[in-house]
């Protein structure tokens, strides 16, 4: 059967579907491809192709402003990923494994940062920090300023929700009897969590952390609002350049950022594949 299915003449509808799909994929990848090609163009003018060169990549890694922004990005991403992963995982555990007063409200609250438009959240945080700093100055005489601190705090605020959703999905798939089995086998609450729950939800936790990392490394709008002088992150810096025009330097920075994204995708597939491929084919014997 399968042999004949392979050489079965394709129906017009089937052919139309296939054409559409490949056109969409072309749409997905053509712009990226063009960008990558142009980033290797030696010419100062983006539109005129002269010869392939690594000139702009060299310039990227000598550009002090870019390097500084990159450093800021990494600091903020590291802080906000760690903090939001811990807070989000705890929130997911509480929601999925416990019943407590105000749970419905809490659940709704956790969805809001995902639903709310980025621009609105940026406005909220800007006014909050401005107002808060003013208040701190007038009450205890401490006047903090906008900078990496405010950026990190803001990134954590939107990342918690995303981590919670991802970890919760994983917890939902996990058989709660496994935790009962651990308790039945003399494990305390903490031991059951440490030895059974945590290892089993780890792909979800790592997936959530990766999502948080990506969101933090990509964020422009919110960061743009809560950054202070000298605390620009890479996307915000690039955004500023991009608004002014197209330059070969931006092409090169963009490709570097793309490559970073790709690496993260590859890592995330690594997480997801690991438990699946080990479990599924072998479970039938």
């Amino acid at each position: 059967m399968s042999v004949t299915a392979g050489i079965r003449p394709k129906s017009p509808a089937e052919r139309l579907l296939a054409t559409n799909s490949w056109l969409v994929f072309a749409f997905f990848y053509a712009p990226i491809l063009v960008l990558v090609v142009f980033s290797f163009n030696a010419n100062d003018n983006v539109g005129i192709w002269t010869e392939p060169s690594l000139r702009w990549y060299r310039e990227v890694f000598q550009d002090q402003a870019v390097l500084n922004a990159l450093k800021n990005s990494l600091i903020v991403a590291a802080i906000s990923t760690v903090a939001s992963t811990i807070l989000g995982t705890m929130a997911a555990l509480a929601l999925e494994r416990f019943r407590f007063r105000g749970q419905k409200f809490y659940d709704g609250l956790l969805y809001l940062p995902i639903i709310i438009p980025e621009v609105t959240m940026a406005v909220m945080l800007l006014l909050f920090f401005a107002q808060g700093f003013q208040w701190l100055d007038s009450t205890i005489g401490w006047s903090p300023t906008f900078g990496l601190g405010t950026i990190s705090l803001s990134h954590i605020a939107f990342n918690i929700s995303f981590v919670t959703v991802v970890v919760r999905a994983r917890l939902g798939q996990m058989d709660p009897r496994l935790e009962e089995a651990a308790a039945d086998l003399y494990a305390s609450r903490w031991q059951a969590f440490r030895r059974v729950t945590l290892p089993l939800i780890m792909p979800g936790v790592l997936g959530g952390a990766l999502l948080a990392l990506t969101l933090s490394l990509d964020d422009v709008v919110i960061t743009n609002f809560v950054a202070g002088p000298g605390s620009t992150t890479l996307p915000v810096y690039v955004f500023g350049l991009v608004r002014r025009g197209v330059t070969p330097l931006i092409n090169a920075v963009s490709v570097v950022m793309l490559v970073a994204s790709m690496i993260l995708v590859a890592v995330s597939f690594g997480f997801q594949r690991d438990p699946k491929s080990r479990v599924e084919p072998s479970s039938r014997s």
């Binding site: 058989d175 009897r177 496994l178 009962e180 089995a181 651990a182 308790a183 039945d184 086998l185 003399y186 494990a187 305390s188 059974v196 290892p199 089993l200 479990v279």
Partner: peptide
């Protein structure tokens, strides 16, 4: 008493073996 302090053990319906 919580389950971890009881001298009983359980064989679960779907076995609940730790998959990891």
């Amino acid at each position: 008493q919580p389950p971890n302090q009881r001298p009983v053990n359980t064989v679960f319906q779907s076995y609940a073996l730790f998959p990891h």
